[in-house]
Each structure stands twice: as structure tokens, then as C-alpha cells.
Simulated scan of single mutants.
Amino acid sequence: MLFNLFKKKEKKPEIDFSSIKTDIHSHLIPGIDDGAATMDESIILIQRMMDFGFKKIVTTPHIMADYYRNTSDIILRGLDAVREELHQRNIAVEFDAAAEYYLDETFENKLEKGDILTLGGKYVLFELSFVNYPKNLFEVIEKIQDKGYTPILAHPERYPYLGGEIENYQQIKESGCYLQLNILSLAGYYGKPAQKIAESLAENYLIDFIGSDLHRSKHADGLYQSLTTPYVHKLLTDYQLQNELI
């Protein structure tokens, strides 16, 4: 009992995510990738996002040839199912879907055919290998632009091969590709190296969008705690993020 009396009180956030309105990166369609496993889990996570101040959620299931062979049709049918469940439970939130495309041959084929789910009708969210630098990165960025889309690179702070020089990120930005930072990176969720890179990106004003990359409850717990960190506070109060444009 004495231990509980002297236990340090948990710091409560003074802000929430209402200033940016929209989360552009999550995995909340149940059962189609490594995100929410069931509809109940999906609804619980959506409600927690609402509690954190988000007014709109654009969920982005993985499309990855070797692991998550989702299609636009699979994602849109899943979107309809979640929307119907939200309606049945009288939960009022704007819920939409795009995709997080893995840079592989399948993505390039979909791009060529125009079979792309976009954020806000304009932006294409894509991710890279966490191990190997893609030699065709700038070629694919140009292909995305040639199709009339604006590319957004998901969580650039998590690719170790980019982490050595801030110029690597500046070069990507200069090519016309936007950068989306995972909020949890600034709370150290993915380790110290990713946190340091995330902080450097913030300090150099290279971040265009932030996203939850929400998969499960422990990510939601981390998002809540991240609101007490100085860098997240800075991003939400003194930074020109573009989330609300989507």
C-alpha cells in the first residue's frame, strides 16, 4: 500500500490531435493485414482515436506482393463493412481508406494500370524495405508524379540506410516526395536511432504529415503518451503540417 501512495503520477497530456484533424496512416480494416484482427478491435481503436481528438481517419492497409496481397476491391469492401458497423453503433466519425503500398513490382504494375487508392484523391502513400535501399526510388517517385499523383513516403525515419545524413531526406523532398513521420517514433517506440532521426527531421522542418500507423491497442497507448513529449507538442502547436488537407 505504501508503494502506491508514493507512486509517481502519470503525466496527462495538455493537448490532443484536434489541431491536425486527420490521421492518414493506420491499419484498421479487420483481418486483412497485420492491424486490427476483428471488427470489435477495429471499432475500439477508432473510438480511441476519436478520444485523442481525430475527426477523420484514413486507414491504409498494406499492399505487399509477398505478404499482404490486398486489392483495391478487398480494401473497399472492408471499408464498407467498418462504416456499416460504425453506423450500427451510432459512432459518428469520418472514416475512409487508401493503402500503404510497398515499393515492389506489383506496385509499379498497379500504378501503370491506374489501380491506386489515394489519400484525398491526390496522394499516394508508399513504404520501402527496412533492409535494402531501393535503387529505383527516384524513378518510382517520378512515375507516381507522371500519373498525376503526389507521393508520400511513409515513416522515413525507420529506414536505417537513410539515417546517416539529413541530406538523404532533403534529396527525397526535393524530388517532390512528401514525408510522413510516425508519431510513435518521437516517443522512442521504434528505438533510439529512429527517435533521433525523427527529431532531426522535425528540427529541420522536413515533415509534411504525421501519422499514427495504428495497428493495435499498445500503439494507441503510445499515442496517448506521445502527447506529453516536447517534439510532438511542437508539431501540433508550432508546425505547418498538411494532414487536414486530406
Rank of each mutant, 00 (worst) to 15 (best):
G191Q: 02
Y159T: 06
L153H: 08
Y161D: 00
G191A: 05
I197Q: 02
I172C: 14
D208C: 00
G188R: 06
E127A: 11
V124G: 04
S129Y: 03
D146W: 05
I197V: 15
P193C: 03
E139G: 00
Y178E: 04
P160N: 02
K122M: 04
K122C: 05
L153N: 05
Y149E: 03
S185Q: 10
K147E: 10
A202H: 11
L153K: 09
I207G: 00
L186W: 03
V140A: 03
A187F: 05
T150C: 13
Q180M: 00
V124F: 01
G188K: 06
Q171E: 15
L137Q: 03
G120C: 14
Y149R: 08
I197G: 09
E127W: 07
K196P: 00
V131P: 01
E142F: 11
G121L: 12
S185N: 09
G191P: 04
Y189L: 04
V140R: 02
L201T: 14
L181E: 04
A202W: 06
V131C: 08
I141C: 08
S200K: 14
F126E: 08
R158V: 14
G164T: 13
I152N: 02
S185V: 11
V124L: 05
I141P: 06
V131A: 13
Y123L: 14
A187S: 13
L181A: 11
I141S: 06
L184T: 10
Y123E: 13
I141K: 02
T150K: 15
L186K: 08
A202L: 15
A202I: 15
A194Y: 01
G176E: 03
I183Q: 03
K143H: 06
A194I: 10
K196Q: 13
E139V: 00
Y178Q: 07
K135H: 08
S175A: 15
P156N: 04
E165S: 15
Y149V: 08
D208G: 07
A187G: 13
G121N: 13
F130I: 11
Y133E: 15
I144L: 09
A202C: 15
L119K: 09
Y189H: 14
E203T: 10
Y149N: 10
G188M: 09
S185R: 10
L184E: 07
P193G: 05
E127D: 11
N204I: 05
P134M: 08
V131D: 11
N204Y: 05
P160G: 06
L119G: 11
C177T: 01
V131K: 12
P151E: 03
D146N: 13
L128D: 05
L125S: 14
H155Y: 10
Y189D: 06
K196C: 01
Y133G: 06
L137M: 05
Y178A: 08
E203Y: 10
E127Y: 07
P156T: 06
L137E: 02
F126Q: 10
G148D: 03
Y161C: 00
E199Y: 02
K122T: 14
